[in-house]
Design a protein around this nucleic acid. Structure first.
Lengths: 128, 128
DNA sequence: TTACATGCAAAGGATTTGCATCTAC
DNA sequence: GTAGATGCAAATCCTTTGCATGTAA
């Protein structure tokens, strides 16, 4: 792996919330000032393939990602107010994997929960 | 509702599988030859808001949609080979809605299963 | 009549790609 | 030495928007 890739990974590690590729580029430039846009996009694709990043929707037309460092299969809760991320176990049991679905063989799934994190929920609507 | 909107809805009804906006435009033009791209995009946005359409990922850079006529809350299985769609009950129980998630208040969620429909699964890899 | 829908085409913008060069191993 | 990574900037191309006009209620 190259230094650039390492910078991108480190930048992703630094986010405690969901981020866009743009956010990632900015963060990666802290360590690798000259890193190019295409390089980051390519690194993101790589990491997504490797399961190191997961796309969790989009914000203003840009894809939103979450760093996925935990090994075990899991999903995410994303705060729609601040982007905070929490993990949640997979709610899909055997039923999702086996038949019962009209012969469908499920090979993968996408699960993301949205809501408000403890902080944003506490602040409440009046806190906005 | 206008005639255009009706054409788009009818076109969506006609799909037994996931479709792109482009697919929808082509289908809608069968009934409304002159319908414009923007009109269909606007209709799609409307229907998505109304819960009549659900986005289920993307294909080659274009958003993929599924017609959602069933009233009850449910999710979809999408065949990655042919786009066939099946319904599946929501796997999220109370745990997803209540606390236990570090104070997170879940307000919505996105669940989509991917795999192979009965037909494509039967055909098998050698059938390709 | 009035608010909303429509069409056209241009604008917008995220993401991808070509190509020459550089880096890791 | 070779496969793959990088940067730059142009290309792509899905989706949105502005505006004048048409349509439903």
């Amino acid at each position: 792996m190259t230094d650039r890739r390492r910078s991108v990974a480190a930048a992703a590690d630094g986010f405690m919330r969901a981020f866009t590729v743009d956010d990632l580029i900015a963060a990666a430039r802290a360590h690798s000032p000259g890193i190019g846009v295409a390089t980051v996009y390519r690194a993101v694709a790589s990491m997504e393939d490797a399961g190191a990043l997961e796309r969790v929707g989009s914000r203003d037309g840009s894809a939103l990602y979450v760093r996925c460092s935990v090994e075990e299969h899991h999903h995410h809760l994303v705060c729609t107010a601040c982007g905070a991320v929490a993990h949640t176990p997979c709610p899909l049991g055997a039923p999702a994997s086996d038949a019962a679905h009209e012969g469908f063989v499920v090979t993968s799934h996408q699960v993301t929960l949205y809501g408000l994190c403890a902080a944003c929920a506490t602040t409440g609507p009046e806190g906005g």
